[in-house]
Write a protein that binds this DNA or RNA. Structure first.
Lengths: 190, 190
DNA sequence: AAGAAAAGTCAACAGGTGTTGGCATATGCT
DNA sequence: AGCATATGCCAACACCTGTTGACTTTTCTT
C-alpha cells in the first residue's frame, strides 16, 4: 500500500471500519452499552462478529472508538452575556440531533463507568475551558449546572419521551431553557 | 394461619419478601435493570434464586414491585409563588437521598421501557396534578420542565458524579436550582 | 401426634454473550 | 505469474443469564 501526495489511499478495510463504527453508535444509542451486542452491531454492518474483534480488539475498545465526541462549541466571545444561554441551548439541540454519539454516550453512561468517564470529560475538558475563556467565574460549577439541565432535557426528550418535552420545537426549547443557562453562566454565586 | 384482631400475623414469608425487595432496589439502583441479576439479588437477600421466582414470578414483575414509588409531594398551596421552586427542590433532594427507589428507576429507565413508563407516570400522575391544583398554567409542560432539571441534576450528582455537582450542599443546590424551578412554574409561556 | 401446607434447596435446562483460532478468499506488490 | 498480506467467514469455547421442576425441611392446623 502506498501513501500518495494527498494522503493514504482508501483501503477496503477503512470502509468496513467506518461501517462498524456507524452501526456501533446506532446500537449503543438505541440499546445502551450492555444490551448492544457485538453480534447485532456486526449484523447491522453486514459483516462477521469476528471482524469487530479483529478491528477493535474487544467491546470496551469498540465503545471507546465509537464514543469519541467533540461538542464543537462555537465562539461565544462576541455575544452579549444575556444571549449566551440561547446560543448554547440552540447549539446543543442541533448537535444532539445530528449525531448518534451523544445519545450512545448518554444511554451507556448510566450503567457503564467508561462511558460515564467520557461524559464527565466532555463537560470538564470542552465546556468548562470554553466558559473560562468567557471569563465566567467558577467555570467548573457552571459547567456542571449546564450539564445538569442539558442532559436532563436530553434524557426527557430523547430517552424517556416525556410528552410535552419530546414534541417541543427548537424555538420553544430555546425560549424555556435559554434563560436558565444564561442565569447559570452569569449569575453570581449564591 | 390466623387473622388476629389487629391484622394478619407476620408470616416468615413477609420478611423474606421484604428482604428480596430491599436487595432488588439496591441492585437495580447500583447496576440498572439488565446488569442487576436475580442471582445477585438473591445472594444479597441470603436466599435461593428460585425463591425470587416463587415470590415474584419473573424479573419484570420483581422490578415492577421494587419500583413502586410515591413522590410524597407536600402541600404547596399556602406558599408564596416565588418560594415554590426552593421548596420543591429541597423536597426532591431529600426524597432522592432517603430512598433507593428513585435511583433504581432512573438507572433502569434509560434502557428498560417498563422503567421508563414508571418514570413518565411519576411526573404525569403525581407532579402534574399537584401543579394543576396550584393553578399553574399548562401543568404538563411545566411538569416536564421540572422533570428535565430535576432528573438531569440527579443524573449528574448520583450517577455521573460530575465533581462540583456531586459535592454541593443541599443549600447550594436549592440556591442554584430553586429559581429555575420557580421560573418554570410561574413564568408565562414563551 | 399425624398430616397438610408453606418455605426453602438443589441441579439442570435452553438460550445468549464476548471472544478465539483455524481456514478460505481476495487483494496488491514484485 | 506467483507470492505475501490483508480481509473475511465459520465453528466452537467458556461463561453467565432467567427460569423450571423435583425434592427436602420447616411450620402450622386438626
Amino acid at each position: 500500500m502506498l501513501a500518495y501526495a494527498v494522503g493514504m489511499a482508501e483501503r477496503k478495510s477503512d470502509r468496513t471500519r467506518a461501517a462498524i463504527l456507524a452501526a456501533a453508535r446506532e446500537r449503543f444509542g438505541a440499546d445502551g452499552y450492555e444490551r448492544a451486542t457485538i453480534r447485532a452491531i456486526a449484523a447491522d454492518a453486514a459483516i462477521d462478529p469476528a471482524m469487530v474483534m479483529r478491528y477493535f480488539g474487544n467491546k470496551e475498545k469498540l465503545f471507546a472508538a465509537a464514543a469519541e465526541f467533540d461538542l464543537r462549541l462555537p465562539d461565544l466571545r462576541d455575544l452579549p452575556p444575556d444571549e449566551l444561554g440561547d446560543a448554547l441551548v440552540r447549539h446543543f439541540v442541533t448537535r444532539w440531533e445530528g449525531d448518534d454519539t451523544l445519545l450512545a454516550l448518554l444511554r451507556s453512561s448510566v450503567t457503564n463507568e467508561a462511558a460515564a468517564d467520557r461524559m464527565r470529560g466532555i463537560f470538564a475538558a470542552q465546556l468548562a475551558p470554553t466558559l473560562r475563556a468567557l471569563a465566567v467565574e467558577e467555570p467548573a460549577v457552571r459547567a456542571g449546572l449546564v450539564a445538569s439541565q442539558t442532559l436532563g432535557f436530553a434524557l426527557c426528550r430523547y430517552i424517556l419521551g416525556i410528552a410535552p418535552i419530546a414534541t417541543m420545537s427548537h424555538d420553544e426549547v430555546v425560549a424555556w431553557l435559554g434563560p436558565t443557562i444564561t442565569r447559570y453562566l452569569t449569575s453570581s454565586a449564591p
